[in-house]
Computed example of a mutant assay.
Amino acid sequence: MTRPPFAPLLTLGVIGLLLGSTPALALEGDASAPIEVEADRLDLDDRAGTAVYTGDVDIRQGSMQLTGARVEIQRNDQGQLTRATATGERAYIEQQPAPDEPLVRGWGRTIIYHVAERRIELIDRAELHQGSDTFDGGYLEYFLDRRVVQARSDAEGVDDRQRVRMTLEPEQQDGQ
C-alpha cells in the first residue's frame, strides 16, 4: 500500500499543529476555520516528512497564528505532525484559549512546538504574555494543557545569558 501524498497530510497536520485535539484549549470555531499560509517559498520532502516554508512565513487558522522567517514542519512515518519550528529575528506564536480569556502570545528567535506534548519552547530573547502577565528570558517553556511556564536565563546554543524577568499583575478584586 502506498502512502498518501504529503500535501493532504500536511493540511491535516497543520490543523493538529495549530489547534491540538482539545476544543477547550482553543476557540470552538478554530477547528473549522480555513488554514491560510503565506510564504515566499515552500520546499516539500515527502520522504523526509518535512515541509519548509521560507520568506516572511505567516500561518493562520482561526485565533492561532505562527510566523517566522522560516517555518519547518515535521511528521513521523505514520504521517502525524510531530514538530513545528519557526525561526527568525522575532518568530511569533499566538492563540486565544477561550472566548473569555486573553490571547497567549510568545516571541523568540526560535519557537518549537512539540505537538504530542502540547509544549512550546521559546528560545533566545524569549517572551511570553498571558493577559497582563509577562515572562522574559533566554529560554521559556510553556505547557498548553496545564498553562505552566518554566523559564531559564540561558538557552542551549545561545552565548549571552538573558536574565529571567516576570511581571505578574495582581488579580482585581470585585468592586475595585
Score class of each variant (00 low, 15 high):
residue 10 L to I: 07
residue 176 Q to K: 04
residue 76 N to H: 04
residue 21 S to N: 15
residue 22 T to M: 12
residue 127 E to Y: 11
residue 128 L to H: 06
residue 16 G to V: 02
residue 94 E to T: 13
residue 14 V to Y: 01
residue 26 A to D: 10
residue 16 G to T: 10
residue 124 D to W: 02
residue 28 E to D: 13
residue 72 E to V: 15
residue 111 I to S: 04
residue 151 A to N: 02
residue 113 Y to R: 11
residue 86 A to G: 01
residue 18 L to H: 00
residue 83 R to F: 05
residue 40 D to R: 10
residue 160 D to R: 12
residue 19 L to H: 13
residue 81 L to F: 13
residue 25 L to E: 15
residue 9 L to N: 11
residue 1 M to I: 10
residue 46 D to Q: 10
residue 128 L to T: 12
residue 39 A to Y: 02
residue 15 I to G: 04
residue 76 N to V: 12
residue 21 S to R: 07
residue 156 E to V: 08
residue 135 F to G: 05
residue 129 H to L: 13
residue 71 V to T: 01
residue 103 L to M: 14
residue 151 A to C: 13
residue 53 Y to H: 02
residue 9 L to R: 14
residue 87 T to K: 00
residue 3 R to T: 09
residue 37 V to M: 06
residue 13 G to A: 08
residue 65 Q to P: 03
residue 129 H to W: 12
residue 26 A to K: 11
residue 74 Q to P: 01
residue 17 L to R: 01
residue 19 L to A: 10
residue 140 L to E: 01
residue 96 Q to P: 01
residue 23 P to R: 11
residue 139 Y to T: 04
residue 85 T to C: 05
residue 154 D to G: 11
residue 10 L to M: 13
residue 49 G to C: 10
residue 83 R to N: 10
residue 137 G to V: 10
residue 102 P to A: 11
residue 149 V to R: 07
residue 168 L to Q: 05
residue 80 Q to K: 11
residue 150 Q to L: 15
residue 164 V to M: 01
residue 115 V to H: 02
residue 140 L to K: 04
residue 109 R to A: 05
residue 84 A to H: 00
residue 90 R to F: 03
residue 56 D to S: 11
residue 136 D to C: 08
residue 67 T to F: 00
residue 72 E to A: 15
residue 50 T to H: 01
residue 159 D to L: 03
residue 49 G to L: 02
residue 84 A to C: 07
residue 156 E to W: 02
residue 13 G to V: 06
residue 87 T to D: 03
residue 157 G to M: 07
residue 90 R to L: 08
residue 160 D to E: 14
residue 39 A to L: 06
residue 103 L to H: 06
residue 164 V to G: 07
residue 166 M to H: 03
residue 59 I to S: 01
residue 156 E to H: 05
residue 96 Q to M: 08
residue 49 G to I: 06
residue 57 V to N: 00
residue 161 R to S: 15
residue 30 D to W: 02
residue 13 G to K: 03
residue 13 G to Y: 01
residue 13 G to W: 02
residue 35 I to A: 05
residue 69 A to V: 03
residue 138 G to F: 05
residue 161 R to N: 12
residue 32 S to Q: 15
residue 164 V to Q: 00
residue 76 N to S: 05
residue 154 D to W: 05
residue 128 L to N: 06
residue 91 A to S: 03
residue 7 A to H: 11
residue 173 Q to D: 05
residue 42 L to H: 02
residue 150 Q to S: 12
residue 7 A to R: 09
residue 72 E to R: 12
residue 169 E to T: 14
residue 57 V to E: 00
residue 54 T to K: 05
residue 74 Q to N: 13
residue 42 L to C: 08
residue 105 R to K: 15
residue 75 R to L: 14
residue 173 Q to T: 10
residue 78 Q to E: 13
residue 67 T to H: 00
residue 139 Y to W: 11
residue 65 Q to L: 06
residue 101 E to V: 12
residue 19 L to F: 09
